[in-house]
Simulated scan of single mutants.
Amino acid sequence: MSNLLDRLFGVLDKAAEAGTRKAAQHVSRRSLLAKTGVILAGTALMPLLPFDRSLGGLAHAADKEADETSCDYWRYCALDGQLCNTSGGTTTSCPPGSEASKVSWIGTCRNPNDGKDYLVSYNDCCGKATVQSSTFCFTNKGERPGYRMGLHNDINWCMANDNKGYHCTVAMVVGLADE
Rank of each mutant, 00 (worst) to 15 (best):
G150M: 13
S98T: 14
E179M: 11
L12Y: 04
S98E: 07
G57K: 08
S133E: 08
V103T: 12
L8S: 13
L55P: 01
Y166G: 02
Y166L: 12
Y166S: 03
E68N: 10
N156I: 02
C168I: 07
R75S: 00
L45F: 15
E65P: 05
G42R: 05
W74D: 03
G10K: 05
A100F: 01
S54L: 14
Y147I: 10
L5F: 06
V11F: 07
I39Q: 12
D117H: 10
A177W: 11
A59P: 03
L119H: 14
I106W: 01
A59L: 10
S104W: 12
V120W: 06
R7N: 13
L176K: 06
D52L: 04
T43W: 04
F136Y: 12
M172W: 02
C84F: 14
C109T: 03
G42D: 04
D72Y: 13
C125G: 13
C109S: 05
S87T: 08
A41R: 02
T135H: 06
C84E: 10
D124T: 14
S70K: 12
L79P: 00
P96Q: 12
A129P: 00
P50V: 11
P50T: 13
L83Q: 08
G175C: 06
D162H: 04
S54G: 15
C77Y: 06
I106G: 00
V11P: 00
P145W: 02
C125W: 11
T43N: 05
K35F: 05
C137E: 01
G107K: 05
A66Q: 09
K141P: 02
G10F: 04
L32S: 11
S134L: 07
S133Q: 05
T86I: 13
R144C: 11
F51A: 13
T90Q: 11
Y166M: 09
Y166A: 09
C77T: 06
S28R: 06
S121W: 02
C71K: 08
S98V: 09
A61Y: 12
D178R: 12
